[in-house]
């Protein structure tokens, strides 16, 4: 497999801005991916295990938003 050319900047300001943007991107992706999984009938323990966090953590972070969005949530 050919090496992928990733244009990582050498400038500290660019590198730090990339970290901030990647965190925001990861948060947005987590919201979208958890919602997609729950809409597809995944349970909280399954989503938590896939993310590598506790069930309580994923529930606390996403339950209110998904309930407000009308997603039918499986308890187990």
């Amino acid at each position: 497999m050919p090496a992928v050319d990733i244009p990582v900047s050498q400038e500290p300001a660019d590198a730090l801005a990339s970290v901030a943007a990647l965190r925001r991107m990861a948060d947005q992706l987590e919201d979208a991916a958890v919602e997609q999984a729950m809409r597809a009938g995944w349970s909280w323990p399954q989503v938590a295990e896939a993310l590598g966090v506790t069930r309580q953590a994923v529930h606390k972070k996403h339950a209110k938003r998904l309930i407000a969005a009308g997603v039918t949530l499986r308890r187990r």
Partner: peptide, 10 residues
């Protein structure tokens, strides 16, 4: 800015 900073990390 968001797209640019993400692109800096590929």
């Amino acid at each position: 800015e968001f797209a640019h900073s993400l692109a800096s990390a590929g």
